[in-house]
Amino acid sequence: MNAQRDALAALKQRLLPHGQDGARAAFFSTGVPELDGPLGGGLPLGALHEVYARAPADSAAASGFALALAIRGAGKKPLLWVRQDFADGEAGRLHAPGLVELGRDPASLVLVRARDASGVLRAGLEALRCGALGAVGLDLWGEPGLLDLTASRRFALAAAASGVPAIMVRIAAKPQPSAALTRWSVAAAPSRPLLANAPGAPSFSIRLLRHRAGLEARDWHVEWDRDRCSFREGSPRPEGSTLSRPVVPLPAHRPFAAGQTGDLRRAG
């Protein structure tokens, strides 16, 4: 019995460094090679990522992008999302059927509703220490004074210790220095239209504002593919209808989409 226990302990000792290294080196890919490539294989798991809405009107896009990242990062593990009450009034509350439409079972999401920013931060930090979670999301509205470099450093450390990605959504806030590993600015982008000019899959225009490794700012255009639970490359410019039709040759000096706005088709 004792011998067995010793053997087990020795085995654990041998595996321990691997496990830790594994956690530190663990990445989750976004599913878009053009995005993963420059990032060095994807986003690190145990780190803080910030997602800024480019304008307050992009709140849903920022939330959607952050949720999509969390879904990629969490895998099968449950999600915990902390939301400020104020955001519910301004941007609407998180709608469970909308989560289903993003490819996540709402049953595996725990929602914490915090009264104010300090509640969001406290609950988020507490949750981040629990290694059993897949990802922790925080929705913050505005620029709370509490969220300074020290606070974000605390988040980064907690994420690194537990290996759980923390994704902080900032709406109505200007990008500030923080301990985040990556910082994104997200805006809604025109989707690839479907048949009869229907709005298509969620698409985002994302900009990498900062990366700890010193990558320079870059823009991408990505769509979320619910069926594969993965991002895919989106079309950078809005196209017209996918149906074929005669087109007027475009003059070389005018933008492609200039003649396309206002082109409406009746739907339904």
Binding site: S63, G92, L94, G98, L194
Partner: peptide, 13 residues
Amino acid sequence: PLADDPPARPLHL
């Protein structure tokens, strides 16, 4: 949701 369909329900309500 049906495969290949865009979201039919919003994320924020």
